[in-house]
Amino acid sequence: MTLQQLSLFLENRPGRLGAPLETIANAGINILTLSLADTAQFGILRLIVREWDRAKQLLEDAGWVVNLTEVVAVGVDDRPGGLAAVLAALEGAELNIEYMYAFTLRRGDKAILVFRFEDPVRAIQVMKERGLHPVDAEELFNLTT
């Protein structure tokens, strides 16, 4: 049920973000979504791509430090309160959210929330129990193309 997310270490200086994206683009790999966390000095670029194993290899060959992380994606209605409803459902389950980001789908009225949990397997279980809808890779990429 989990998704594979690629994380890259980047120095926070002009032009650094473009380089890895170009590497992937040149190989014809499409990026579903990305998020960037940065400090004044360095940043972490997180990517979700369909062919994550090929992308990882390409990036590593080009000299980047790349990590693979399991994240959980959840579909919600793209309307006010959508995120709040998910967070409310998770409340009290003692799930540690390390970080999260969100994106909306080009078609339709759905948004996707991407969570990094300390324990993704248990998180999926809890979500299902509480009537949420975690989406797997297959479903996610079908939704987006």
Binding site: S7, F9, A37, R46, V65, V66, N67, E98, Y99
Partner: peptide
Amino acid sequence: IRPELFSDRMDQMQ
């Protein structure tokens, strides 16, 4: 930075 020490989590990197 070396792969062994890289984390996708900002708090760990900091």
